[in-house]
Design a protein around this nucleic acid. Structure first.
Ligand SMILES: [Zn+2]
Ligand SMILES: [Zn+2]
Ligand SMILES: [Zn+2]
Ligand SMILES: [Zn+2]
Lengths: 145, 145
DNA sequence: GCCATCAATGATATTGATTATCAATTATAT
DNA sequence: ATATAATTGATAATCAATATCATTGATGGC
């Protein structure tokens, strides 16, 4: 099993791009965090390690990571794109609390299968999908009561 | 069964807001179209009937229609919000072609039920959800081959 | 090493959809 | 009529994301 590092470097070589200290450091920082993270949040962390890094570079490296199959964009509909690990992180959907934002990753194989069938019943070949479940977590329900 | 007009006016009264020619005209124009429409597209149509209308007003009336339960926001992930009819237009999800953008409204009652169960299994009470299925329609598949 | 080529960086400017601001206008209530 | 409050259109501001660009740095052939 290849490491994420190796995959990233292989992708750079394939695209005739170069490995640089900035790219390495941003990749490392992203991999260390497990949560869904915004470009801005990642930039803030990276800046502490190396204040000379520009935020344009963070945006660029995030795009590279997505292309390399290491990161995935997640859109919770609040106007900011988030990024999560993709490699060794099989497909899943998200259940988000409308009260506090607490997020759970979920996967239901029956739903996944039905999505494919629904698409086919309209003559479409399903390539991908997004599903966001919104609700109230237990804590937030108790707070309301 | 109340008309959409009546619902809109009832909502305005409830909020101590006023009916105006601009609001009436923008509402009519929105109701006449059946497709998912952007604020910009709606503004373009409205402008032809009355060039003095500002686009800020279109944004404002769209927001009112959403609040009144007459319109629903739809986000296909391309950075522009679309709006669709909500009243007498029961809940549905969307199947969008990655090739040409052709969109079909879909509803699968089993999926809807499972979504509720998944949320409950994590202690969440489901309030709403978004599901976007992306694929290739028949036409676009043939074009590729 | 030297030179030519091409990628990478960081600062800055720009974009584009949406919101906020504000002065002027219009409706409503007393 | 007068005070109050809502509405409008124009314009400015926001904000994430992208584009631009001059500078720096790496690479490869010689
Ligand atoms: Zn919560
Ligand atoms: Zn996730
Ligand atoms: Zn198509
Ligand atoms: Zn629809």
């Amino acid at each position: 099993m290849k490491s994420e590092r190796e995959i990233f470097e292989a992708y750079l070589i394939k695209r005739h791009l170069r490995g640089t200290p900035q790219r390495g450091m941003i990749l490392d920082t992203f991999l260390k965090r497990e949560e869904h993270i915004t470009a801005e949040q990642l930039y803030d962390i990276v800046k502490k390690r190396d204040p000379s890094i520009g935020q344009a570079t963070v945006y660029r490296v995030l795009k590279l990571m997505v292309e390399a199959g290491l990161a995935r964009e997640v859109d919770f509909g609040d106007g900011v794109m988030r990024y999560e690990h993709c490699y060794n992180h099989p497909h899943h959907d998200h259940l988000v609390c409308r009260g506090c934002g607490k997020t759970v990753e979920v996967l239901d194989s029956v739903i996944e299968e039905l999505q494919k069938r629904v698409a086919e019943s309209f003559g479409y070949e399903l390539t991908d999908h997004e599903m966001y479940l919104y609700g109230l977590c237990q804590t937030c329900r108790k707070k309301k009561a």
